[in-house]
Amino acid sequence: MTSISQVASQDSALPKVRVDMLPLLLVPVLALLMLPLVGSFPTWVTLTVAGLAMGMMVFMMASGLTLIFGLMDVLNFGHGAFVSVGAFTATLVLLPMKSWVEAESVWMNLSVVGLAILLAMLVTGLLGWAFERIIIRPVYGLHLKQILITMGGMIVAEQLIHVIWGAEQIPLQLPATFRGAFIFGDAALEKYRLIAVGVGLTVFISMFLVLNRTKVGLLIRAGVENGEMVEALGYRIRRLFVGVFVAGSALAGLGGVMWGLYKETLTAAIGGEITVLVFIVIIVGGLGSVGGCFIGAMLVALVANYAGFLAPKVALVSDILVMVTVLLWRPQGLYPVAKR
């Protein structure tokens, strides 16, 4: 009798969730290790901020992709198209409202960029909805066809951008007050990179809160673990699918705007080029894991920046090296998602 009641009392309290801390330490440890190698503190600060900024932008583009994969087991090879479309949509606001962009007022700059981001997210969100409906819905569960079809969608989208915006690359100006750098002692921090870090952190924190503190987030996480069970409990997982796909596409659009402003010139291939980096990041993070994706993005971007400074030749393949090292340590990525 006593043993049974013991078991019962143990069951009544949920077991504590074990938090895997090791990957969390990777980024700070890497940054600290690089300090003596880089040599000078100001340079190190500049490099680290640059790396973080790039990581944040990559995270914005990758987070949607990894969530879509986790929830629906669909890997969208055309995700880069949303990045391109987002960046090009931003030109619809930024080019006509040139006077606001060039004005020396923070508020005017912020509102014009905000407007551009809003429009870009709206357009890419809608496009994502259409993409899910037309391109992806018929091929759920068929991996081979998914890869082919999303690749085809990417080609068509890239060509359509050429049709609509022309084949020449479009120069994109950073707003006046975003240019230049803050100087702290000897360290120069580019303003736009700080803004990118801010936006990226906001996205990450709000995503974290939505996933962990709301009912929708709970359902999404449950869907990643076991979709059939969520359906059996009476929730329409299809609607979740569509919602996540739209949100993920909109995030890619946001990332596209930020990335486009960072690069300051736009070509239709901008999305295709970044796709490779995005894939590496989500493989490093563990397919389907948002937290892993965040750490992966930071890791890849920081290593790329440090390598670019310390050994420029190595920087060309640093992404691959990071990926191989992580996979040798954890073959499923930093945070493996249980079911896969």
């Binding site: 890997l75 090879f77 998914q146 796709t275 490779v276 894939f279 590496i280 030749k313 060309l316 992404d319």
Partner: peptide, 23 residues
């Protein structure tokens, strides 16, 4: 691992290779 994984890895390796070759 699965088909998708292979597709992604080859994409990454091939693009790195082409960058290295042109650099």
């Amino acid at each position: 691992v699965r088909a998708i994984f292979y597709a992604m890895i080859t994409l990454a390796v091939a693009s790195a290779f082409s960058v290295v070759a042109s650099q």
